[in-house]
Structures are given as structure tokens and as C-alpha cells.
Design a protein around this nucleic acid. Structure first.
Lengths: 219, 219
DNA sequence: TGAATAGTGTCTTTAAGACACTATTCA
DNA sequence: TGAATAGTGTCTTAAAGACACTATTCA
């Protein structure tokens, strides 16, 4: 009844996105064990069958150990596999991606947040994982509220506008953006909360419960 | 350097869609080994690390052994995992879905093609796999050429129209459908090939090389 | 007042959907 | 001719995008 086949190694890898200095970044880890000891890589690790309820929980454990708290948005990305992707043997890596507001990271962690278009050479098949994660995030950004999860709990309409532009990598008309976002009911104004400065105060918003419904059409 | 953790079992499962009698169906297999011997289930099996280049190749091997030829469209769906989904132990199943034209199946295989809305009770977590596969197929159908892969190599515009309606499960306007499809360049007329009958002959089409580009907007 | 950001009204363009129409074959 | 399927033209509605405008604060 037990299978007689040699089993592959099973691990998870995570692409943790954040926005730093107006650029879309990934949080990298310096590896503390061979192979590739000392090299910057995506946070990852083996599944612990005694401890993890499934691979998503393994990813959450890895993320918690890296940034100290849970990701607000986490999604399975793709499963990578083969004999060559890891020198330790035939392996399966279930990859996840998550969105992290930079404000929640402490300074040392922010230092390891590097722009997706200026990453160092990455070990294993991590370049493919990154390419697919960026493609997925950009793709989903145009028809969902995903980029909002890169912001802290309270934000202005202009914060949101900017983070969409940075995630998608294109200009979006201010008025059209407002109309579209408000029509989708994905955010709600926080009553009587405004951000002040040397200019007109801005209404503060938060994600509403409908935040994860995808849009009907494009932004 | 080798991990000391006990490793999960690694398998692939496949959701093979076809259209039979105007209904969206899944091809099921009667299991020949325990657990669940004799029960209808999704075709699947363990990854063979000596033989398979990756999990997609494992899925192709499973599909070939089931229907005797390669699937024309195959895509990774999702990876399911946990200690309880398989009685043999903590397992990871990389699930794939594929689209198969019924005309290519022989009679005995067609008999195991059952409508997705009238499936027997399925073992393991196969009901979840099916639910996610149907959701993905329906979702992609509205903005891609996916349903065309359920048809044989030559088909009329009305064949295509019907298969979209059956896949999505809704009525689509004939004229709007034609405009949209032709505008996308996903199919091309086969010169001087028509299907004849007791009515006006219908132009035969085939998938063009751009068939896998997703649509700009909805059908 | 001008600089800076916040927020709105409205027009143009384009896509989607509805629907009525014409076309060609065979019995 | 009528039944059956094939294929087209065009109008209405609605969304997306562009753009100009008004609003409020502080220095």
C-alpha cells in the first residue's frame, strides 16, 4: 500500500512584494545554510509534515519567521519541479506570493527589499519564480484590489492611485481611477479621518469587506 | 546537506474535460489499486523521479496512459496538500487540467466521461480539485480561446459558438460572438473548406497561431 | 497670493449587446 | 416554397479614458 517510489523533496518558496521609494520590491533573505550559503534568495524552506497543516501553512511559517508577522495577502503562485532546480535532488517547490506594506517592516528588513527590476543574481530557479510572480501581480492589479494590500490600513485616494501606477508600471488618469475604485466598493471612507499637510486635507480610506471581489472591467 | 525531515508523498491528479451530448464532462478512471480500489476518480499517480522531467511531464504521462495520446491543452491548476487528503500519509498533489476533443476518444473512454454537474461521489479531495478546475475553465472561457481546444481540428463558427455557450453555461449573441472571435484572430478560415448539409454550407475554421493570446475584453 | 494636493463634471471614443435582416442549401 | 443553418449591418447602451475645471489648506 505504501508507494515504493523514491519521493521528491518538498519545499515552499515565497515572493514577498513591497513598495519602497516608489518602486516595486522583493524581500530577499541571505541563506544561512548550503547550498548557496550567504547568497541572497527568496525566503523558503522544507515542508515540515509534523508541523504544517498544508503547504500554505508552511509558507506562512516561513513568512512569519522572516518578517515577524503574517502576510495580509497570500496566494499560491505555481509549483516548480524537476531534478535540476535544487542540487540536493529531484524537488518540488510550491511557490507563494504575498503583499507586505513597507510601513510594517523594521529598518533592517527594509534594507533587503530590492527593486524587482534590479535584483542580484538569484540561486536555484528563483529567477523564474520571480518572473512569474511579477507577471501575476501586474496582471491581477489591472482588474482587482490587490495593490491596496501593499498599503497600511489607512490611506488616501492618492496613495492608492500611486501604488496602482507603481505596481502596473503605467500612468492612470486620476479622475477615472477615482470613479472606477469608488464604483467597485472595495474601499470605504473612514468617517471624519483626514490626512493633513500644507494643502487641502485628504479623506482617509480603508479596505472594505468586498475588497477581494475582482473588478468587472479594467481600471 | 540532505534534509532530515520526513518528506511528503508527491503525486499528480488530472481533470480532463470534454464535451459530450452538449454537456461539459470529466473523464474518470476506475481505480485499480487501494486505497479506494474500484472507485471512479480523477486520473492520477505518483511522480516517478527516475522518469519524469517535472510534474507536468508526470501529468502528461498519466494522461497518455489514460487516453492514449497527448492533451492539446494542459495547464497547471493548483497544488493540494495536507496530512488528511490521502490515507497513505501527508501528501502533495499537483493538479492539472486538460481539454480533450471527444472525437479523439474511443467508445470505452467516452463512456467514462460524466457531466460535471452529475458526478458520482469522488474519493480523496477530488471534489475540491474538480470545483477549482471547473471554476478556472469557466473563468478563462470568457476571455480566451480555451473552449476551442474542446473541438476537433476543423470546426464551424456555430460549433465554436455552441461550445462556448456550453462551457460558460450561458447564451451568447450569435452576431456579437462572430465579431469578437474574428477580431481576435484566434481562428482562421480554411480556404475552400465547407461543411455541407441540408442548409447553406458553413465555412470551416482552425485555430491560428495566436490562439493562446487572451482577449482584450469579454466575449 | 501661489504652491501643493484634493476632488468633480463632462465630453469623446470605443466596446458590448441586442436585434433584425439577408444568404444558401436541400427536400 | 419552407425549413434549416450561415452570415451581416446597424442601433443602443455603457464603459474607459482624456481633460479641464473647482476646492481647501498653509506659507
Amino acid at each position: 500500500m505504501e508507494p515504493t517510489y523514491p519521493q521528491p523533496l518538498v519545499m515552499v518558496d515565497t515572493a514577498l512584494f513591497t513598495i519602497r521609494e516608489e518602486r516595486l520590491c522583493l524581500i530577499l533573505t541571505r541563506r544561512r545554510e548550503p547550498p548557496f550559503e550567504g547568497v541572497l534568495a527568496l525566503p523558503g524552506g522544507f515542508v515540515h509534515v509534523q508541523e504544517d497543516a498544508d503547504t500554505e501553512m508552511a509558507a506562512r511559517r516561513v513568512i512569519r519567521s522572516k518578517i515577524g508577522f503574517d502576510a495580509r495577502y497570500l496566494e499560491q503562485l505555481f509549483t516548480f519541479s524537476g531534478p535540476a532546480r535544487d542540487p540536493r535532488g529531484w524537488s518540488v517547490s510550491v511557490a507563494y506570493y504575498a503583499l507586505i506594506p513597507l510601513t510594517l517592516l523594521d529598518q533592517s528588513q527594509a534594507a533587503e527589499a530590492l527593486p524587482v527590476d534590479a535584483l542580484p543574481p538569484l540561486p536555484f530557479d528563483h529567477p523564474q519564480i520571480v518572473a512569474r510572480a511579477v507577471e501575476r501581480l501586474r496582471g491581477k492589479a489591472t482588474y482587482s484590489s490587490l495593490p491596496a494590500f501593499l498599503l497600511p490600513g489607512e490611506f488616501t485616494m492618492n496613495d492608492l492611485h500611486r501604488i496602482y501606477e507603481q505596481t502596473i508600471g503605467a500612468r492612470l488618469d486620476k479622475a477615472s481611477f477615482r470613479h472606477k475604485i469608488l464604483e467597485q466598493d472595495i474601499i470605504e471612507p473612514i468617517p471624519n479621518r483626514f490626512r493633513v499637510g500644507a494643502h487641502r486635507p485628504a479623506q482617509l480610506y480603508r479596505l472594505s469587506s468586498k475588497a477581494l471581489t475582482p473588478f468587472e472591467r479594467k481600471i
